[in-house]
């Protein structure tokens, strides 16, 4: 069963304040502007292929760490500087899943992409953004294996 964390729910509710496409885009860009890559102490280039987001042409990578309190910390890097949507998605997932349990992460619906970006995305872009969610969920599940 899929569900959202309280912080992801809050982000989606905030997005609803921007029915105009241009305003919504600016709101999403504000997330991208807060993007910071994974801390060098945790991972350095070249990143292991196991952390490469499949199907993401912005060359996104994802990691999920246990926070020691039963929750997770999600971290990302986006190697293509033109990958603004991937950067925005990384910040939303990092913020929205901070401290969530692995099972909460695993319950995030893949179509969260549409809730955030709308359906006017290219096939490739959709694949990449869904891939970020999918890999994050898979890495979270591994923490409990």
């Amino acid at each position: 069963m899929s569900s959202l964390t309280p912080r992801l729910t809050e982000i989606l509710e905030n997005l609803e304040f921007f029915p105009d496409r241009a305003d919504r885009i600016q709101f999403l860009i504000s997330f991208a502007e807060r993007f910071v890559p994974i801390e060098p102490a945790r991972a350095s280039l070249p990143y292991p292929e196991a952390h490469r987001v499949p199907g993401c042409e912005s060359e996104a990578f994802a990691w999920v760490f246990a926070d020691g309190q039963g929750g997770v910390q999600c971290r990302y890097d986006v190697l293509n500087p033109q990958g603004i949507s991937a950067q925005a998605m990384a910040v939303i997932l990092r913020d929205g899943l901070e401290g969530a349990s692995p099972s909460q992460v695993a319950a995030v619906p893949d179509d969260l992409v549409y809730s955030i970006f709308g359906r006017e995305l290219s096939m490739g872009k959709t694949a990449g953004l869904m891939g970020m969610i999918g890999l994050t969920k898979a890495l979270a599940r591994r923490l409990t294996d």
Binding site: Q26, I84, A88, F117, E120, L121, S122
Partner: peptide
């Protein structure tokens, strides 16, 4: 662009956007 956010982050002065889906 493929990335729908990219134009709004900055474009060549005077350039208009054509979005392939819309």
């Amino acid at each position: 662009n493929e990335d729908p956010l990219l134009y709004a982050t900055g474009h060549i002065p005077g350039a208009h956007e054509v979005d392939w889906t819309r």
